[in-house]
Design a protein around this nucleic acid. Structure first.
Lengths: 339, 339
DNA sequence: TTGAAAGCGATACCAC
DNA sequence: GTGGTATCGCTTTCAA
């Protein structure tokens, strides 16, 4: 065997045992508190571990125990404030239980996602978290035969799988309700990518709420976007260039709202004096836009801890109940009352 | 041994070997292309692997090979756009070489950082990248005896360690030069946390450049910040409340600039008509603020790939030369020419 | 080409 | 309480 000789060979239980004059088994017992050890040997082992600066090889432990104390997280982008807030929550929840997240990126591409999941499984993660993405539910259910999975952004139920969404539809309804309360009737909507369930739910909420208020849904006021700033910018340009009239914009998400806001700025259209904007997500920076953005808060950190807790229960074969965090409207300054 | 019985026991080389009617050694050779195998056995193995859906246990491989094909990344915050852009670059650079990043968070806390590094080493990462943080150089050099390290945000040179910074000082000079070129004389500066080298370098650049232009450095115009929006907001409030006069603000970083901009907005002070703002970092969202922020671009993605490449060379004991990415001023719309 | 067997570093069963 | 040792799943000599 040709071992990489990069680093000094680290000490092993055997080494410690030899120096301390005990058996490897005893050292192991000391490490894990698996059994009583005479004070004498305990002291000796303690000392040797200290002086040899011994650290157990987690790889070996994992192999032996059949558990890597690692949970795989499939995210879609490392730079998304949206995903990363959830990630932080997951990390927080798993940390105390001694699990570390192994993060991989799917880039919203089903085949890449599948590839990463395989990689994660090959590394023997004890559990798998899937943050949205484009794989089919069936595929995920399939994977859940090999490893417990909790998914976010899709409803899922299986022997070793659980997935949940936030109620985007209801939140979108609330947002539009709010706009209407503030006197708005001509409300434009900038869509997200139609293949994302969240985007569809938000659109549906928009449509239904207008209808419920007997406001005609004008298809010209619904423009495509991509959940990115550029999409928001383009969308507003399109709205303006085709001469639509509107007093408020419901942006598919905050990034879209940023782009929309910039497009307005470019044409000297004031927010909220001339046009109101409402977003969706409540990214951290939405607190500090000018004006601060009124938006729907996604409690992603809570989602993360929620995911972590479910994961833990699942790994330990414990029953769990889920308390899905609620979306809420956060009213800041980008919407003005009119009429 | 009490193995976790969570999942169906996965197939092993032995199983494959048995079914295929060959020895485990041959299966291994097939997997790694380590030796020539007769077409007959090759076909047989291929078939069995397929039908058993066999995947090698990476843990076992790692243990045996003494390499986990994992590199540890110590970051400071999972939600920082700044760090995550670098992370993406690292991921990109390491991916093709078959390495996956294991990410842990230090939260700018030396003791927590050390703890995470120990954890990473215990998991036998083949290399370690440290993104800034508050550990001492000495401590890092110490760790580099156990694992090759490349650090960002500090200069470092060692047998198995390398660290580099971007030239924050020069970039800060350029930024202030630009402001002065545009006619500004009364330029306020919002500091970052003084324990961060970058923050100190930016302040020094500010001071020196003013001095070079024979502009008196007014200590009242230098206000503390924390590299966060809140700090920028508070700083501008302080500036305004103590009645300072200034035509431009050099914010320690973009987040600070966002806060500063909001503070101005609150008092109906226009940007850039009344006050100009320049930031530092060029976070993604700075493109879409109103007005789009003039700032110093940190090529963090390139930094990431650079780190990745160095890491790879280091792991393979190859010589490497470093081409440190350059900072650059990106002129957008938050600075106005005056006077 | 191929197989037998040793060993990576830890744990846990079985005996004493 | 403690030690010997088989074992986790894989790779790689060494022999054939």
């Amino acid at each position: 065997m040709k071992k990489d000789t990069n680093n000094a060979t680290s000490t092993t239980v055997y080494e410690v045992a030899r120096v301390a004059g005990v058996s490897p088994a005893t050292v192991s017992r000391f490490l894990n508190g698996t059994a009583k050890i005479s004070d004498e040997k305990r002291a000796s082992i303690e000392k040797v571990i200290e002086q040899l600066n011994y650290k157990p090889n987690v790889l070996a432990q994992s192999l032996k125990m059949g558990s890597s104390r690692t949970i795989g997280v499939l995210t879609q982008s490392l730079v998304s404030g949206y995903f990363n807030e959830a990630m932080t929550g997951i990390d927080e929840a798993m940390k105390d239980a001694g699990y570390v997240p192994l993060i991989m990126t799917g880039h919203w591409h089903a085949s890449e996602e599948a590839e990463r999941v395989e990689l994660l499984i090959a590394r023997r993660v004890d559990g798998l978290v899937i943050l949205t993405g484009n794989m089919s539910d069936a595929q995920i259910l399939q994977y859940s035969n090999r490893v417990p999975i909790v998914a976010f952004g899709r409803k899922l139920e299986g022997k070793q799988a659980f997935g949940f969404c936030l109620d985007n539809y209801q939140a979108a309804c609330d947002a539009v309700d709010y706009l209407i309360e503030q006197g708005h009737r001509r409300i434009a909507f900038i869509e997200g990518p139609p293949e994302q369930e969240d985007a569809r739910a938000r659109l549906a909420g928009y449509r239904d709420t207008l209808a419920r208020h007997n406001i005609e849904v004008n298809p010209k006021l619904i423009v495509p976007g991509d959940f990115l700033e550029s999409g928001g910018l383009l969308a507003v340009n399109q709205l303006l260039e085709t001469g639509q009239r509107f007093s408020a914009i419901f942006a598919g998400n905050d990034l879209t709202a940023y782009g929309a806001r910039l497009a307005l700025y470019r044409r000297n259209i004031r927010v909220p004096e001339d046009v109101s904007i409402i977003g969706f997500d409540d990214l951290h920076s939405s607190m500090c836009t000018t004006p601060p953005l009124t938006t729907v808060r996604q409690p992603l950190f809570d989602v993360g801890t929620c995911i972590g807790q479910i994961m833990l229960k699942m790994i330990n074969h414990e029953k769990f109940t889920v308390d899905i965090p609620a979306l809420s409207l956060v009213v800041r300054e980008s919407v003005r009352r009119i009429g």
